[in-house]
Design a protein around this nucleic acid. Structure first.
Lengths: 364, 364
DNA sequence: TTGAAAGCGCTACCAC
DNA sequence: GTGGTAGCGCTTTCAA
């Protein structure tokens, strides 16, 4: 089979119709100032000749240096640091655009994000972002802001979470419901009778709530032999998680399985180890970072659900560039499957773990 | 943090040194005809100004219509059909290059591949491929050919398998050893005592042998309670697989787990069902296609290891274009982690399953 | 409403 | 060894 496409450009269309290429361009892009009749002829001929715009030429001519704002929280660093650096390298690799990135940070989801977003609206128009990458925290508090920004001409891309009721251009995230569902299936298949517990961050966060819904639903379907204890919220703080874990371990009968739906897993794992329950409780965690590695290698952790920050970054930037350059919206909503990382496939992910994910302060 | 890179082009370097941009270009690309001294000055200034080539301009100027040959087997269609169509769409989406694809097919791995490769060497030089995408079957029989083609100036990219001793430019594949290892871990975690069997294609194929090595190694480590029966080779033929499965099911004690390391799983699953053993034997399969879906949904299949043809295609084309356009070899060897598809995350993969994977004849 | 032409940054060719 | 320059296909501006 041969894909030989004859390359028809604007020039060819113009010649075929004996008009100027300026007119063809205007017609093709509906820029106005073209009679309806001519426009129709152009469109028809373009179709006929199989017109494919030369993106290199377009990019060269436009030669825009597009400006992308990136507003992400410092925490949880194990996820957002790799995400940031992946955005950086995806931007560097981009053909066609010079991409200027403007990174801004705030402490954590729901703490400082609104302020940064507000500041975007105040930027002088010559410094406007062409696109803005954000992780929306509480939708109720950012929806309106995101919509305002979008209407001001900045394309909004949500990563890691979503604000579906805002006018964001696109959203990329791991499917949270499915994440919970996978955790439940893994526990269902490996555990005999007993009860399982979940430790999450904050149930007002959509992502966390969705994970729990998926977990509960699948547990009910696949594991009628397992009882689900009420969810514990650790608010992504280390001591809280530690304390709550100790409390869980003192319950009788003791839970046989644990689903940690945020990256705040280390204090939990430490508590489990200190109580000499390592390996006796099946644990499914979230994300991948240095401190977690030994627990996976030892088998203390059955599996971790990796949210693929690199992939999310790549998709986000592809979405932005193809939107700005070609005017096509690839995929308004991308829901990735998390990678299920076990002991056996861990080696393949080791190069995804960066070094400088040192937890400072109480959480990570 | 602000990434404002001042955009220095060839022009800027030339002006800074009061020389012509032709000279700068020659120096930057080591094209010769430049005095060592000038070349050094140019390189230094380029460094200083942070020279970044404008890839759009380069692409526009070169305006090559690169020609990529794609030689893949018809079987196993569930893998190679999606791979082919993903190559197609990745090529269409490519900025900078017009890509002409030349698809060629042969019946199956090891049957007809050598002939197609030989034919490549005979092509008139004006029809030479800039790059060739292949799945090497038996390395012993294609290594030399691949090297000849590579030396003739065609970049060879191996997908789905590898020929590491040839002079191929790059290789993209799922890590076979890890695939087997994952299968073993899943069975180890879900099975009590007993024996497990493997059905593979052909142990002379590197990929199949590697999977088995990984399976055996991990089984020994994680599941001393499980016995591994000797591997069965079905040569990817349906009746053979069916017959062998029936034989396996007649063994006493009956195997409690099964690892099917090729996509030739349907006859096995049918045999299991007919013997009313569905759900009583844990089965891990390979790849994802329509016919397999009901088995995953019903739980007959515990997990399938998906080899991500779309991802492989994308990486292969990225490797090719960045090599031909920028002259940089991204990653000579890419080893993907297979996706572990369970019942819970299956919905996220449904759109990866194309329709026209109808098995014709004896195998797929 | 349409035509003509400049020019984006790079490569390659020709002249010196 | 080096300088000068045409031109890739597109967008955009100015003139008609």
């Amino acid at each position: 089979m041969q894909d030989s496409i004859k390359l028809a450009g604007i020039r060819e269309i113009a010649e075929a119709l004996s008009i100027s290429n300026g007119t063809v361009d205007r017609a093709l892009h509906g820029r106005g100032g073209v009679s309806a009749k001519t426009a129709a002829r152009v469109l028809k001929m373009a179709e006929e000749l199989g017109y494919r715009p030369n993106l290199a030429a377009r990019a060269l001519k436009l030669n825009r240096r597009i400006r992308i704002g990136v507003q992400l929280p410092k925490q949880i660093a194990s996820f957002f640091d790799p995400l940031r650096s992946a955005i950086r390298s995806a931007a560097t690799a981009s053909r066609g655009f010079q991409i200027a990135l403007d990174f801004e940070e705030y402490p954590r989801l729901g703490h400082g994000d609104v302020e940064l977003l507000t500041r975007v609206l105040g930027r002088p128009s010559d410094q406007r972002y062409d696109a803005l990458i954000v992780t929306p925290g509480n939708p109720a508090r950012v929806d309106a802001l995101l919509t305002s920004i979008a209407r001001s001409g900045t394309a909004i891309i949500c990563v890691a979470s979503d604000a579906p009721r805002s006018e964001r251009l696109a959203s990329v995230a791991v499917d949270a419901y499915t994440s919970g569902s996978i955790a439940a299936e893994l526990l269902a298949r490996t555990l005999p009778n007993g009860s399982v517990a979940t430790i999450t961050g904050d149930l007002t966060t959509l992502d966390h709530a969705d994970k729990l819904r998926g977990f509960a639903a699948t547990l009910a379907t696949l594991a009628p032999h397992l009882t689900l204890l009420t969810a514990v919220e650790s608010h992504d703080r280390a001591e809280e998680a530690y304390r709550q874990t100790v409390a869980l371990l003192k319950r009788r009968p003791r839970p046989v399985g644990l689903y940690l739906s945020t990256a705040n897993s280390i204090p939990v794992l430490e508590a489990v180890r200190e109580h000499r329950m390592a390996g006796k409780i099946q644990i499914v965690t979230t994300d991948l970072f240095n401190a977690l590695l030994p627990y996976i290698e030892s088998g203390d952790v059955l599996a971790t659900l990796y949210q693929r920050p690199q992939t999310q970054a790549k998709i986000a930037l592809e979405t932005i560039t193809s939107y700005l350059l070609e005017g096509t919206l690839l995929n308004p909503v991308t829901r990735l499957a998390p990678h299920i990382i076990l002991r056996s496939n861990l080696p393949l992910f080791l190069d995804h773990v960066t070094e400088r994910q040192i937890s400072r302060g109480v959480s990570f």
